[in-house]
Simulated assay, not measured.
Amino acid sequence: MCAGEVRQRRVSYMRGFRQWRWHLDEVFVQINCQTHYLWRAVDHEGELLESYLTKTRDKKAALAFMEKTLKRNGSPERITTDGLRSYQAAMRELGNDDRQEIGQHANNRVENSHLPFRRQERAMLRFRRMASLQKFASVRANVHNHFNLERHLVDRRIYKLRRSAALADWQNLVS
């Protein structure tokens, strides 16, 4: 089974899940002393759905990001965002403004998902090209999603079984 098949199986499962929620946010990233924006979508389980890199933080960028995410992952029941007006304008244009939620602490799921990315960014001593950042973000998301085993929700025996299965899948993918 290849990585694309694993992703397709997960997305088809989640499309049938009624309470599928997304959390959208953007991260400021410096590339050669210029500010760029990495838009990220995380589902209610903490898995990264999509990342999209732009030079701007406006309606056009938010709309492109949301269209790409909706096309690849289907439509969720609720979309949680921060107060950025670009999201509201893009949601209004897509006709999803009734699904949007905005709250002070409602978007903590995606805010906390930025932390491992920031740690790895610091370890790599920043990025020098947009293409390398986009490639890094997408590959890192797939690896993180594959090994995100929700240790805090299951007991040790189940966690060890899932970890062994994930490692076996990974070895099949890379061999």
Rank of each mutant, 00 (worst) to 15 (best):
82 D>G: 06
4 G>A: 15
160 K>S: 00
76 P>V: 05
73 N>Q: 05
84 L>D: 05
88 Q>C: 00
88 Q>L: 05
97 D>R: 08
173 L>R: 12
165 A>Y: 08
61 A>N: 11
128 R>H: 10
125 L>D: 04
6 V>T: 15
63 L>D: 01
29 V>K: 09
125 L>C: 09
162 R>P: 00
30 Q>P: 01
90 A>E: 09
121 E>Q: 15
140 R>S: 14
135 K>S: 07
36 H>K: 14
93 E>G: 00
41 A>I: 06
129 R>V: 01
52 Y>R: 08
124 M>E: 08
167 L>Y: 13
172 N>I: 09
151 R>H: 07
160 K>G: 00
43 D>S: 08
1 M>L: 14
141 A>R: 05
149 L>W: 02
112 N>W: 01
83 G>H: 05
81 T>I: 12
11 V>R: 15
22 W>L: 05
142 N>F: 08
69 T>H: 01
5 E>Q: 15
22 W>K: 06
78 R>D: 01
12 S>C: 10
70 L>M: 13
145 N>W: 03
89 A>W: 10
134 Q>H: 11
74 G>Q: 07
22 W>S: 06
104 Q>P: 03
15 R>T: 02
51 S>M: 06
44 H>V: 06
13 Y>C: 04
156 R>S: 08
143 V>Q: 14
53 L>C: 03
137 A>P: 07
73 N>L: 01
6 V>M: 10
46 G>I: 04
26 E>L: 11
77 E>M: 06
136 F>R: 04
161 L>S: 08
98 D>Q: 12
171 Q>S: 14
21 R>H: 12
60 K>F: 05
149 L>Q: 06
143 V>W: 13
9 R>P: 02
146 H>I: 03
78 R>Q: 07
14 M>K: 14
12 S>P: 02
13 Y>S: 09
110 V>L: 07
107 N>K: 03
18 R>Q: 02
60 K>I: 08
82 D>R: 10
50 E>T: 12
55 K>D: 04
62 A>H: 03
21 R>K: 13
131 A>N: 03
1 M>S: 14
145 N>R: 06
105 H>L: 13
97 D>A: 09
102 I>K: 11
43 D>V: 11
141 A>W: 01
5 E>A: 12
58 D>P: 06
37 Y>Q: 03
157 R>V: 10
128 R>C: 03
119 R>V: 10
92 R>G: 08
142 N>E: 14
104 Q>F: 09
173 L>W: 09
13 Y>V: 10
148 N>A: 11
140 R>M: 13
159 Y>E: 00
101 E>Q: 08
48 L>A: 11
84 L>E: 02
